[in-house]
């Protein structure tokens, strides 16, 4: 197979029509995912992280559309495929799991039947075989009593078990890319730990590349090889997880890391919050979108938007760090 990267997202722009205007939900996002790696996308609600995933899957809501850009998966340009061709890829090559496991399974069908559905559609197996396969998958994702559980309806599953079932369904066709959109946000921490452990195991055992979308920096730290930080529809920082956490090169990442309480903090220090609120996506400021909240902003930031350029070990969209300055507490405080 002659492709350089498993997935290449190239300058994607996706717009959403809302009541009072157009939201540039994804505004020029580019990144690559290699086989077997785990890429984290972090950002707050409205940062465009979920819309990026939905753009890759071409599952944007009706009010949204990809207006520019190219997504290439295993050398095929997804953004140019017909809807039928895209459907074939969605069920088999790329799987997606969502935040809310409570609504992602249909309450009127047995779980085994639903989890086996991709196999019936894409591998043309009969119902019996598909349900037997579902039982095997249930075992793989750690659902006990698999052969009994496949005959049960979704309401008999807890939130964690449903998310496992969703993961089982995603894995049924052995995809090479799994997109997990806030897969543990609706779950309790001990259940979150179970699901993250499962995703880690699957990544290790089957080499499934994973895009993990989350707002939780701790989850990224434990799961991802590389991380993309999004703000206002843009990538503001991108790099190896260790580098980004050890030495953030964008003030947003820098401030975010200092604003969250850490379990391992020794002494009680007041948190250093980020001022202001996330931006109104319909009326974005000119220049760098983080400027109004940025402790490092210089006059140029409000006037001109920086590009995403290499700063030391990673990429950053910031005039200050691109000019060679470092982010540290004295400047920011």
């Amino acid at each position: 197979m002659a492709f350089a990267h498993l997935l290449e997202v190239d300058d994607i722009h996706s717009h959403l029509a809302v009541k009072d205007g157009t939201v540039r939900a994804v505004d020029g996002v580019s990144f690559k995912v290699d086989a077997g790696e785990t890429l984290g996308i972090v950002g707050e609600s409205g940062s465009g992280k979920s819309m990026t995933a939905l753009s890759i899957m071409r599952l944007l809501p009706r009010s949204g559309s990809i207006v520019q850009g190219k997504v290439t998966f295993k050398g095929r340009v997804l953004t140019e495929l017909s809807e039928d061709e895209m459907e074939a890829i969605r069920g088999t090559e790329i799987a997606m799991i969502f935040q809310d496991p409570m609504t992602s399974l249909n309450p009127v069908y047995r779980t085994g039947w639903q989890v086996g559905e991709p196999l019936r559609i894409h591998r043309h197996v009969d119902t019996r075989t598909s349900i037997r396969a579902a039982a095997d998958l249930f075992q793989k994702v750690g659902i006990p009593d698999a052969s009994k559980r496949v005959t049960q309806f979704p309401h008999m599953f807890s939130g964690g078990m449903r998310q496992r079932a969703m993961i089982a369904m995603g894995l049924s066709t052995s995809p090479s890319l799994l997109i997990a959109d806030e897969p543990t946000t609706a779950l309790d921490v001990t259940i979150q730990a179970q699901i993250l452990e499962l995703l880690r195991t699957l990544n290790r055992d089957y080499g499934t590349a994973t895009i993990l979308i989350t707002h939780n920096l701790g989850v990224v730290a434990g799961m991802c090889d590389r991380v993309i930080v999004m703000y206002a529809g843009r990538v503001v920082e991108q790099g190896r997880t260790e580098d980004v956490f050890a030495r953030p090169e964008h003030p947003y990442t820098w401030s975010l890391l200092r604003s969250i309480p850490r379990l391992d903090a020794d002494e009680h220090e007041p948190l250093k919050p980020i001022d202001g609120s996330p931006p109104d996506m319909v009326r974005l400021p000119a220049g760098c979108k983080f400027t109004p909240r940025c402790p490092f902003a210089i006059p140029r930031c409000a006037a001109e938007e920086p590009e995403l350029l290499t700063v030391r070990d990673q990429l950053s969209r910031c005039w200050v760090t691109q000019a060679g300055a470092t982010l540290d507490g004295d400047q920011g405080g």
Binding site: T190, L196, A221, R262, D264
Partner: peptide, 20 residues
């Protein structure tokens, strides 16, 4: 406590986890 992810990749990868 062990289930709570810490935003520090080096620490997080070395941590021992109790998975219930």
């Amino acid at each position: 406590l062990s289930a709570i992810p810490i935003p520090d990749p080096r620490l997080e990868r070395r941590r021992e986890r109790i998975i219930l």
